[in-house]
């Protein structure tokens, strides 16, 4: 079952799990980023549990789609998605950023099986995805390549070198996703260094641009379908999101870009999400097998 194609309802529930995982692992590590992981949890879940053909039990499956997070700092959501999807036991999430754990602060291929290419220095990932898409085409493979970028990251010049390349080589097997939460470390993106009008920029680079509410699962699935149906040019999905989405006191506040919740804040966040730190941590600890954990409703 490489492509899960979960229903919208099941995806909503799984996205809630992912958000709980993010808070629980950050609370344990007391280090890491909160804002971006929470804003990308919905489209991330749609990617891993509906759209992409991935095979966590056979990482080198030649038929797999390739995914790459150019924003390496959102490891809390990357690892939560991987754990929920069965790449490794969910219990491992509690070793995030620990010396002897396999979950580095930024994604590392040789520490975390399933990561295709390490990342962490912004602006490089879309180029990597271009190479993956071109290599796949050279092989005549039908695989698709997905690259998640940040909106602040659009300030890196290399993004636009890659944008030029992908359109020049008509890499229609490539789908970029921008987590457009309008915040970066120093403040509002438009205040720090404006990137608007972003859709026009991508169109001018000859990409097919799809704008979507990045928290509307049904809309996200439609956007993936539209990208899949687009030929002759790469597609980019501008996912309009809210930083810190799902935790009232984090939402739309740039100060949550790079810090974790303390214990009390994590407790409050998880309470808002219908669980407690002790209960959710216990769920993670108990799941020691690398497989997709059942949902509350979806599994029955």
């Amino acid at each position: 079952m490489p492509r899960l194609q979960m229903t919208v309802e099941a995806l909503r529930e799984r996205a809630l799990f992912v958000r709980r995982d993010i808070i629980a692992l950050l609370a344990k590590a007391q280090s890491g980023h909160s804002g971006g992981p929470l804003s990308s949890a919905d489209f991330g879940t749609a990617l891993f549990f509906h759209e992409m053909n991935v095979n966590p039990s056979r990482l080198d499956d030649p038929g797999r789609d390739l995914w790459h997070f150019s924003i390496g700092h959102v490891t809390p959501v990357i690892y939560s998605l991987m754990g929920e999807r069965g790449y490794f036991p969910l219990a491992d999430l509690l070793g995030f950023r620990q010396l002897n754990g396999h979950l580095q602060g930024h994604p590392s291929k040789h520490d975390t099986p399933g990561i295709e290419v390490s990342s962490g220095s912004l602006g490089q990932g879309l180029s990597v995805a271009c190479g993956m898409a071109l290599g796949s085409r050279m092989d005549g493979a039908s695989r698709r390549v997905y690259c998640v970028m940040g909106d602040g990251e659009q300030q890196e010049g290399q993004i636009w070198e890659a944008a030029m390349f992908a359109a020049h080589y008509k890499l229609d097997n490539l789908c970029g996703i921008v987590d457009y939460n309008r915040k970066q470390i120093d403040g509002d993106v438009e205040t720090v260094m404006g990137i608007a009008p972003l859709a026009s920029k991508w169109r001018a680079f000859n990409w097919h641009v799809i704008e979507v509410n990045g928290h509307d699962i049904a809309g996200i699935l439609q956007a993936f379908d539209e990208a899949r149906a687009t030929s002759g040019r790469p597609s980019v999905i501008l996912a309009h999101t809210v930083m810190g989405r799902g935790v009232s006191f984090m939402e739309d506040d740039y100060k949550w870009h790079g810090v974790p919740p303390n214990r009390d804040q994590a407790e409050q966040a998880l309470k808002e999400m219908g669980t407690s730190l002790a209960d959710w941590t216990a769920r993670l600890e108990s799941w020691t097998r690398p497989e997709v954990a059942p949902g509350l409703r979806a599994a029955s």
Partner: peptide, 17 residues
Amino acid sequence: AEQNMMCIAAGLAATGK
């Protein structure tokens, strides 16, 4: 675009080239 080229090469290598 040398920076782009370095990372495109990495992506190609990730597909077995």
